[in-house]
Write a protein that binds this DNA or RNA. Structure first.
Lengths: 159, 159
DNA sequence: ATGAGTGCAAAGTGTTTGCAACTAT
DNA sequence: ATAGTTGCAAACACTTTGCACTCAT
C-alpha cells in the first residue's frame, strides 16, 4: 500500500501521520501511534530496537516484531524513512514531508553516530551517473561511511 | 595486521598476493591460495558464499568460516576489498593495486547486480563534506543503490 | 616443534514469517 | 462482524567466536 503524504496541517507530526493513516484506510493502533510519537519527539535517528525501547514507555506491551511492521507500514505511506548502514542496523526517522527538513546521512565508523548532510550532496554524482550510464541513483536510503572531525582528530581507524 | 601492497610484479595477481603474504610473515595456506585464485579469475564481485562455492572446486575441503577469515586477512593486507550493500551480503574483489583498475560500486535494487562506476564519482561530495563539516567520507566500502537502465525501463520498483 | 590457521558447532545481529488470538473499524 | 493487527515462536541471512586439532613454517 504505497501512498503519498500531505504536509503537516499544524497539529504536529503525530496527528498529521494519524490523518494519513486514516486517509489510506489503515488502522490507527497503539503501536503505530507510539512509533509516530517516538519519532516525532526527536530529531535523532533511531534503530528499530531504540524505537521499541522508547515506544514501550508509551504503550507498555509492544513487541519487537510489531515495531518492525509499524515502521514498514509508516514507511510505505511515506511518513517514515530509514537509512541503511554498512554494519549495524537501519535507522529510522520521520520523513521530510513531515519534518520539512530533507537531508541525507553519513555515519562515522568510529563513534557510529549518524550525521545529517545536505540533501543535494550527491546531486553531482546522480547527474554524472545518469548521463554516463543511465543508472538512476537512489541516494536517500544509504548512509555513506567516514570519519567525523572529532574521531579523525583522535586518530580513529577507518575500520 | 594492516599492511600496504606492492603492485603486481608480472606473475599475475595470485602470485603477487602470495608474495605479499610471505612478506608479511603470513602463512600461505590452501584456503588463502584458493581465495586469491577465485578472485583473480574474475572481474565479478562475489559474495563470501560465492567465493566458497568456487574455492571448493579448487580445494575441496574448505569451510565457510575459513573463507571469511581468509577474506579478512587478505583485506587487512590490502589485497582484497569488499563493498557493503543495503540488503544482502558484502561482495569481494581483488583490490585496485592488484588489478590496476580502481572503481566504486553501485547496485541495482531490482536485479541486484553490482556495477562498477568511476573512482572519482563522489569526489565532489567528498570535497564538500570535508570543507563544510570536516567529515572525511570513505566511499569505497559502500555501494549506493539505484536502478540500472534496464530495470528502470522495465518499470522496476525502487523498493 | 610450535603457533598460526582450520573445521566445526554454536552463538550473535538484525530482520522476516506463519499462525492463532485480538481489536479497530 | 470481520478483516486488519498483534504477539509469540521460530526461522531467516549473514557473519563472528570459542575451542580442539592440524599443518605451514
Amino acid at each position: 500500500m504505497v501512498g503519498s503524504v500531505a504536509v503537516d496541517g499544524g497539529g504536529g507530526p503525530v496527528s498529521a501521520g494519524i490523518a494519513v493513516l486514516r486517509r489510506h484506510g489503515e488502522r490507527v493502533t497503539p503501536a503505530r501511534r507510539a512509533v509516530l510519537e517516538v519519532l516525532g519527539a526527536t530529531t535523532e535517528h533511531l534503530s528499530a530496537e531504540e524505537v521499541l525501547g522508547r515506544a514501550l514507555a508509551i504503550s507498555r506491551s509492544l513487541h519487537r516484531t510489531t515495531i518492525y511492521r509499524a515502521l514498514e507500514t509508516l514507511g510505505e505511506l511515506g511518513l517514515v524513512t530509514h537509512v541503511h548502514t554498512d554494519h549495524g542496523p537501519a535507522f529510522y526517522h520521520l520523513s521530510a514531508p513531515l519534518t520539512g527538513t530533507p537531508h541525507l546521512h553519513v555515519r562515522c565508523r568510529v563513534c557510529e553516530r549518524i550525521m545529517d548532510v545536505p540533501a543535494d550532496l550527491l546531486d553531482d554524482a546522480v547527474r554524472r551517473l545518469r548521463e554516463t550510464a543511465g543508472f538512476l541513483l537512489l541516494v536517500d536510503h544509504t548512509a555513506l561511511a567516514g570519519l567525523c572531525s572529532g574521531c579523525e582528530a583522535a586518530g580513529g581507524h577507518p575500520g
